[in-house]
Amino acid sequence: MLKKRIIPCLDIKDNRTVKGINFENIIDAGDPIELAKRYVIEGADELVFLDITATQEKRKTLTELVRKIAAEINIPFTVGGGINSLEDANAIIDSGADKISVNSAAILNRNLITEISKQYGNQCVVVAIDTKFVDGEWMVFRSGGKIPTGLKAVDWAKKVANLGAGEILLTSMNNDGTKAGFACDITKQISEVVSIPVIASGGAGTMEHFAEVFQETKATGALAASVFHFGQIPIPELKNYLKTQNIPIRI
């Protein structure tokens, strides 16, 4: 049976893992490679690395980091942050990443999703969607959550699936950093209307929150950062707990 995936996310800035709250107030959380190796040993199912300061000058540093990660870990990993073109995606995938994640660039240039998926297959293309509940609607924001796009999250999710995305990484900005639980309502809505996997992100604070998102929605993965980085939820304990809740999980 296919298992639900537990996915630690490492936000990278200047080659360090960092963590912000509600996309701000950034603090240091250690060396990304050491952290990644620890997560593999602890039983993480995949890893996501997001370069939050990606700029053209730093692109080379990022591909170098991706190369090092690929040499050290033997589970799948996704790299995102500032991927704006097919060439950017090529550089990351050639360095050893299994998937790339696009966010703002996909909103500004929808062809990008199709171009990358044509070249590498849709399983390589994760579209990250940052969503916020505004005036009774879940809306899409871009550029690190700073700019409203006017797109409704459900519509955008359907659109990216049609354009060739292989997976959606759905982050609720309302929940991110609150440790009050995942946004099960929008995660449920989106995971029920698209036929590609959806990863829930933003808000994990307890082991029960993970059980809740898997029981109440069709998300096939749940992503979190600080609860893992700072040891509040040890991954082996989380996975054993989910197993007792009859959630299919890899031990």
């Binding site: 296919l2 995936r5 199912d45 399983q123 292989g166 036929s195 590609i196 996997p197 096939t220 993965g221």
Partner: peptide, 13 residues
């Protein structure tokens, strides 16, 4: 067949 999510993506026994 499109009766479940495609691609199958993840760990299976």
């Amino acid at each position: 067949p499109p009766t479940a999510l495609v691609p199958q993506m993840g760990w299976n026994n």
